[in-house]
Design a protein around this nucleic acid. Structure first.
Lengths: 215, 215
DNA sequence: GGAAGAAAGCGAATATTTTCACAAACATAC
DNA sequence: GTATGTTTGTGAAAATATTCGCTTTCTTCC
């Protein structure tokens, strides 16, 4: 939610939607669909068609009037916009239940993301190998490994109490972007991009909706 | 994001923030803090103080002018608003890496949520017990178990291709709220509350930010 | 090649959300 | 009990985001 971009007047929501569009376009490429209209894509995504056109308009003109969008071409452009024409190198901090699951997640690499290093502080874990083959490093090696391997994104899957510290260490090692699974609002310097994945908050939203629905 | 409430003019963002406030108030109760002002809480949460007061104003007056808010009292009220004065019963669908991690997650119960049943379709998994002690049911038993145990929230941790079907089955069994971890936009009838936990989308946001920051 | 139909692009209108700024209310000190 | 200092609650303003409706551009069919 909170990034420190200077000149972008582009809503975060737009970027989020571009990501969703790309997901469906990817599926369409698989299915051999050549051309898609904003109306159709909108229906798939559960979004207003004008919204899609407006989102794309921030970045250029990618469609043909009277026709629609070439699926492959649009996908390519969106991926270029999002910066997905490369593999992003990630470090994973915290090898508990969630961290292990993330490290085993097959979709990352297909999506353009890769864990190049994993860390924990538990002596029982450090030095062991994950099923994926990764060696678990101690946090003390963070700075060195981050620099060696060129980590660009830090993924925090530690307990809440350790998350802030882990984030700061990542930042100090030069990492500029953090995906935070810990249920805490990280306090980080300007210029750092942070995204929170917070399912307890989502559950609370559901609880609220259910409670309201009943009265 | 998409729920089907009729009369609520209350922003989803407000509910999300209430959830975040409650988290910090909880911590303050632990620390023995008695009173908190919107300014202080705002700082903790990285939010504008007026925002906090406005969020609360949707539901009533909980503070004392010139003083602030009684931490315990405010926490109680927020929990009441969110519907967290009970334990919500959840079913988990899909016992892969992520599903296993979720089933083992200790914070749920502390937060007021509990898995009362878990499901998969893999014959190698059905009938076995999770480390938590839960027996893995086959999806064919979903309807029966959901009704027996009074499941209120369905948590979907299946592959994307199975998610829509799983969601529909949950709905047909009477479940009104779904927490969806699959990277897909579920198409569900009005009156169903859906929240998506979608970290690939979050990663794409980070990738975009990093890409922009460089030029 | 002209007419009809379709769908993108885009400025304007609407709706929503956030922030501001200040009056009202309470506590404390003298 | 009055003055002073706080901090809430809130209407109004500002900022953002979404949707509409129309114009433009392209395709296809006669």
């Amino acid at each position: 939610m909170r990034s420190a971009m200077k000149f972008s007047k582009i809503p975060t929501a737009t970027i989020t939607r571009l990501s969703i569009y790309s997901r469906y376009l990817e599926a369409m490429v698989q299915e051999g669909v050549k051309i898609i209209a904003s109306d159709k894509l909108a229906q798939k995504c559960g979004i207003n068609p004008a919204q899609i056109r407006k989102d794309l308009a921030y970045f250029g003109e990618f469609g043909i009037r009277g026709v629609g969008y070439f699926v492959k071409e649009l996908l390519f452009e969106i991926k270029r916009i999002l910066g997905l024409n490369k593999i992003w190198k990630m470090a994973l901090i915290g090898i508990g239940n969630l961290g292990s699951a993330l490290s085993a997640h097959q979709n990352f690499i297909r999506q353009g993301y890769e864990f190049v290093a994993v860390f924990d502080v538990d002596p029982a874990k450090v030095g062991r190998r994950l099923p994926s083959g990764q060696i678990i490093h101690h946090m003390d090696e963070l700075d060195q490994v981050v620099k060696e391997k060129g980590v660009e994104i830090g993924v925090i899957a530690t307990p809440a109490a350790k998350a802030q510290m882990a984030a700061l260490r990542l930042i100090n090692s030069g990492v500029k972007a953090i995906l935070n699974f810990a249920p805490i609002q990280l306090q980080l310097p300007e210029g750092t991009a942070v995204e929170n994945v917070d399912f307890t908050v989502k559950l609370d939203n559901l609880a609220y909706n259910l409670t309201m629905a009943e009265g």
